[in-house]
Design a protein around this nucleic acid. Structure first.
Lengths: 238, 238
DNA sequence: ATCATTGATTGATCTACATCAAACATGGTT
DNA sequence: AACCATGTTTGATGTAGATCAATCAATGAT
């Protein structure tokens, strides 16, 4: 594993406060791997053998039922994923696939659980992380239940612009079909919803979105700190 | 606080494995209170000052945005709620109100956090609990994204019958309006959806639901262990 | 450059569910 | 018992978003 990858992982809230002994131990047991685009990493129902950490690229967590499929989460580096399944030693509830060529570090779940038992600081970090993950899912459910597709899109566009440093113009970081599914709509509906927002503060150029009127767009989204987590590019809560 | 209430709390996964010292300490700092029906316990955005434990009665966690409101979770005794907000020391993302006359124990969040810092077993239990809560929310989101209203209703009816001991007939444990909102539909739609399921294995008598054909109903719900958590009345995973 | 593949858009139509409005139960009060 | 408040059901209608189908644009392979 590359040293710079380790450094990135070390920055995660999950490992920031942990002893270097624990951290190095885990890293020694782990391995790094590069995956091509659109590759299935694992499927829902599989045994949770590894905590995954996305170092480079992009990953979608999605779920299927009865022939239907929905993207649940879109991940960008550096992020850990499926921690909860590893902790409970239960099958994954979601499938994972790469969006593009991605570097992923895999920490064996058994080693992780052992480290947690030994190191109280790590246990505390995991606890804190899981509490945060739970709250993120609550936000997402609220988003889904309380907003219409159009409103969810407007909110996502604002959050995205924010994340990239409050820019007025940005490229969509994922294919529109994946974004559509993540937002709980079809690609066709996303296309139309984007078109519909042209009269509410955005302009379009292929995969580029230009925000022409923040206020109008924000009015559609009706930003709410109890649903939307605006993170600026330095990762600060705002 | 009544001794039997303490006993019930002691049975929770959260406190089952914890030293009696830690447990008694927390109980000493807590207090029990009885609330009338339909009373707001707290609102979303409030400071998370207490871990709540429902001892008797029923509670709905719900959320509001832009004038709309949706029930997020329906709780039955004995259950703790809003653990994550207490752990992160952040505002509640949901509001809570009693469904009926309810007994609730409130553990001050500061004391809880202090106890967690002192007692590794408690920390481990909290971690495990939060991982489970996260997974429950994932299941709920999958349910919401992948199933139609009718399918969600069928699945809920099956889960409910299961929970009450695989009975063929049961009373709805909450008002239909709350159930409707929980399932992500309007009361009118719930009423019609229930009517529509009459041809798929159920019969109705007011608030009583009679399952006349488990197979037909199960076919509509398309039960999936990665979405539906069937719990029998002894609380065992099945 | 040309072709093939995959994803995005547009248009026509359909449908699940919401909304609005009125009648209908239900349970508790006086 | 008669009353009122609150919740439920039914009916008529509206609409957000899905589906189906075709065209269009982008990307990569030969």
């Amino acid at each position: 594993m590359r040293e710079e990858d380790k450094a990135g992982i070390r920055e995660l809230p999950l490992f920031r406060e942990v002893s270097s002994e624990t951290f190095q131990g885990l890293m020694a047991a782990s391995y790094s791997q590069v995956f091509p685009p659109k590759l299935d990493l694992f499927g829902q129902g599989d045994r949770a053998d590894f905590l995954h950490i996305l170092i480079e690229g992009g990953v979608a967590l999605h779920a299927q039922w009865n022939g239907r499929d929905a993207v649940m989460t879109l991940l960008r580096p550096v992020s850990s994923f499926i921690l909860a399944a590893c902790i409970r030693d239960m099958p994954y509830l979601m499938s994972a696939r790469t969006l593009e060529r991605s570097t992923i570090v895999m920490i064996p779940a058994v080693d992780l659980r052992a480290a947690i038992r030994r190191d109280g600081d790590l246990a505390a970090a995991v606890m804190f992380e899981l509490a945060g993950s739970y709250r993120s899912m609550v936000r997402q459910s609220k988003n889904l239940k309380l907003r219409t597709a159009r409103e969810r899109l407007a909110a996502w566009l604002l959050a995205q612009a924010h994340r990239q440093g409050r820019v007025n113009s940005f490229l969509l970081p994922v294919e529109k079909r994946d974004l559509a599914s993540y937002l709980g709509m079809t690609p066709e509906s996303l296309s139309r919803a984007l078109g519909g927002l042209k009269s509410d503060g955005i302009a379009l150029d292929g995969a580029r979105v230009i925000i022409t009127d923040w206020n109008r767009l924000a009015a559609v989204a009706a930003y709410d700190p109890l649903i939307d987590k605006l993170i600026d590019k330095w990762g600060e809560d705002t």
